[in-house]
Design a protein around this nucleic acid. Structure first.
Lengths: 139, 139
DNA sequence: GACTAAATGAAACAACGTTGCAAATATAGT
DNA sequence: ACTATATTTGCAACGTTGTTTCATTTAGTC
């Protein structure tokens, strides 16, 4: 099901509209939590090749449509960027919370990461905070 | 080169002393930064099997000798725990800093992660903070 | 030195991720 | 609507990462 919003999202980031991009973007829109490669692969493997999924994710990352979400399992996850992300300019100073019971990782958009004082000579360009524990559903 | 300290480290965590554990532990002691599996593999592949390296890392994790260090490349890294870690009780509320120039990740032991206020119902058990940028050597 | 539990090596397997190239397709221009 | 062109896709092949099983070896205890 392709919505006008998704079409705009792709075109707005200067990407061609293709069925794989549309389908994968739709997954992110539908799900409220971060997706791993295999989460996505499970849902679209009949329609698209593995390689296409990898390349689509890479394209989305480059264009600022999604951002990486760290995971202590070693495999990355991905989540939609908020509206104001572009190719070069990302704003992700929010917290990623992974529930150890349901396994879902979500962005706590409202929780802002406080400024961290680094030792002399260090300069930060990106900050990733992953908090693990139990979410409000699983408590 | 096996030091008494390393022997104590293994025995103190109730592990048998073996040549692979000693060698891999020596790597961590020697290096000031976090190591990935492949970093380790490169150095010991002639002496030990791949599987042994994986199992040694898992054992060290379980016993509280090393801890996971997140990486936005998708592969985990590992670093020595400070002295007071045990099987169940870990204290890693420090920052991991990855320099995007030299690629090295190190623990900023002195930088403490401030307490983050979570929404109602959320409960944190573990906090991982990865800051990326340039370190004092590469600036 | 011998016993026993733990650790290792080897092989096989599955998942993850990338590259090169030919075929297909989305857009721009006419 | 048709064509040209650059982008995207599928496929095959490959390399890395990580796990499991089982027979063999080794560390620690007596």
């Amino acid at each position: 099901m392709t919505t006008a919003i998704q079409t705009d999202m792709l075109k707005g980031h200067k990407m061609r509209f293709t069925s794989s991009r549309s389908a994968i973007l739709a997954l992110f829109v539908k799900r409220p939590h971060a997706l791993s490669y295999s989460d996505i692969e499970k849902e679209v493997s009949t329609a698209f090749d593995r390689v296409t999924v990898y390349r689509t994710l890479k394209t989305f990352l480059d264009k600022g449509v999604i951002h990486k979400v760290l995971d202590d399992g070693g495999t990355l996850k991905y989540a939609l960027c908020n509206e104001h992300c572009h190719d070069q300019d990302h704003h992700h100073d929010h917290v990623h919370f992974k529930c150890t019971k349901c396994g879902q990782t979500s962005c706590l958009e409202d929780v802002v990461i406080p400024t961290i004082k680094l030792p002399k000579g260090y300069k930060a360009t990106e900050v990733n905070l992953l908090i693990q524990g139990t979410c409000q559903k699983c408590r």
